[in-house]
Simulated assay, not measured.
Amino acid sequence: MVNRLKRIEGQVRALIEMVESGRPCEDVAQQMSAARKAMDKAFFRMMACSVMESVAVSDDETMREVERSTRILEKYA
């Protein structure tokens, strides 16, 4: 999770540099979209962790299903 957040932090720093250097709005918007998607993925990963802790089941099949659902959310949300 920390690595994901550090990547996002780098993306946001790059966005600031793009704006400060006067890059075209479309370029900035594209990078903003990428940063937002990365943040969404980090959010869904964190929520999956929360669900796993809440369920507190040692059943491997349940954990695999939670992971599968998380990957679907990350991909299509």
Rank of each mutant, 00 (worst) to 15 (best):
M1R: 09
M1P: 08
M1F: 07
V2P: 02
V2S: 06
R4A: 14
K6S: 04
R7A: 12
R7N: 10
I8A: 06
E9N: 05
G10M: 05
G10F: 02
Q11A: 07
Q11D: 14
V12C: 04
R13K: 14
A14R: 13
L15G: 02
I16R: 10
I16H: 06
E17P: 00
E17A: 10
M18L: 11
M18N: 03
G22D: 07
C25M: 12
C25I: 11
E26Q: 08
D27H: 02
V28F: 04
Q30H: 07
Q30E: 12
S33M: 05
A34C: 01
A35W: 02
A35L: 03
A35K: 01
R36T: 08
R36H: 08
K37H: 06
A38C: 09
A38P: 05
A38Q: 05
A38T: 02
A42D: 05
A42H: 03
A42S: 14
F43L: 15
R45C: 00
M46Q: 13
M46V: 08
M47V: 08
C49L: 07
S50K: 06
S50A: 11
S50R: 02
S54A: 14
V55C: 01
V55P: 01
A56C: 09
A56N: 15
A56H: 12
A56Q: 14
V57S: 15
S58W: 02
E61I: 09
T62N: 00
T62Q: 10
M63F: 02
R64V: 02
R64P: 00
E67S: 09
E67R: 11
R68S: 10
S69D: 11
T70F: 01
T70M: 15
R71K: 15
R71L: 14
I72G: 00
I72V: 15
I72N: 04
E74G: 04
E74S: 09
Y76C: 07
Y76Q: 10
Y76S: 08
Y76I: 13
A77H: 08
A77N: 12
